[in-house]
């Protein structure tokens, strides 16, 4: 049973709260754009025949969106949930008629909203200032973003159930996040990495996000990325089941 009014208030209140958290604001809204500016400064966006007439930023912009998705899903969800559990916030909710499903849905939607906001700022910067080329369909790209976000949020909830407190969640999140960023083609092009690394990267969820989003950005279709869709969809379903099974209020 989902309480609609409560859900509305939860999402609005939590988005407001997220925007008041300096750490959250930095990582979700500012980190990727700053990275873009940095890369833009170093590489510029002149067309490069090696990548089919695309500039460095054209290629990397969609992958930076993957960073926002991973930060929100892995770090934000897990650290916030464990933090709330530890502080007794979840228990305070539990003392009211609020249903767990309503709370979780509210949390998921809030993080969706923050992710979309962060990616939107990133793309806005890229397209307006750096004149990054966008060849894809906005609708398909949005769907791809939603699928990737859902997968990573469910991973975040699994992490929240595994970690006993927010400090452990932060460590676990970092241990997963930074290697993911390095090995998934987000920061360094996979094409330039040795075969062994490329093999490992196939097992990293972020790689599939990058491949999917990049492909959709360049105008490819879902049909050409069925494997990525399957992997991410699978993560989302498995993650949701495990998270629902193990979710604790305290």
């Amino acid at each position: 049973m989902i309480q609609i009014r409560a859900l509305q208030k939860l999402v609005i209140a939590q988005v407001r709260l997220s925007l008041r958290d300096p750490m959250g604001v930095f990582f979700i809204l500012l980190f990727a754009p700053l990275l873009l500016i940095f890369m833009g400064f170093i590489f510029g966006n002149d067309p490069d025949p090696m990548s089919g007439g695309r500039g460095a930023l054209d290629v990397f912009l969609p992958s930076y969106a993957a960073i926002v998705i991973a930060v929100v899903g892995l770090m934000s969800v897990s650290v916030e949930t464990t933090g709330r559990r530890e502080a007794g916030v979840l228990r305070r909710f539990r003392a009211t008629p609020l249903r767990p499903l309503t709370y979780i849905l509210g949390d998921v939607l809030t993080h969706f909203a923050m992710t979309i906001l962060g990616i939107f700022l990133l793309f806005l910067l890229g397209v307006t200032v750096y004149k990054v080329r966008f060849d894809g369909s906005p609708l398909l790209l949005t769907m791809g973003i939603c699928l990737s976000t859902a997968a990573f949020i469910s991973l975040g909830f699994v992490l929240a159930s595994l970690a006993p407190n927010p400090r452990t969640a932060t460590i676990m999140g970092n241990v997963l996040l930074f290697p993911m960023m390095a090995l998934s083609g987000t920061t360094f092009p996979l094409e330039l990495m040795p075969e062994a690394v490329r093999n490992i990267s196939r097992f990293i969820p972020m790689t599939h996000v990058v491949t999917l989003l990049r492909g959709l950005w360049f105008g490819e279709t879902f049909g050409e990325h069925l494997m990525e869709v399957a992997v991410l969809g699978g993560i989302m379903i498995m993650g949701t089941i495990i998270a629902a099974w193990t979710f604790r209020w305290e």
Binding site: Q3, L10, A13, D21, R84, A87, G88, V89, R91, R92
Partner: peptide
Amino acid sequence: IQFQSAALPPRIKVGEALDLFASFY
């Protein structure tokens, strides 16, 4: 129910907290 320890999300305002919790009933 009133709890012994605080237990509200950080950086929440008084009116926001009351408005939010009122919606649970």
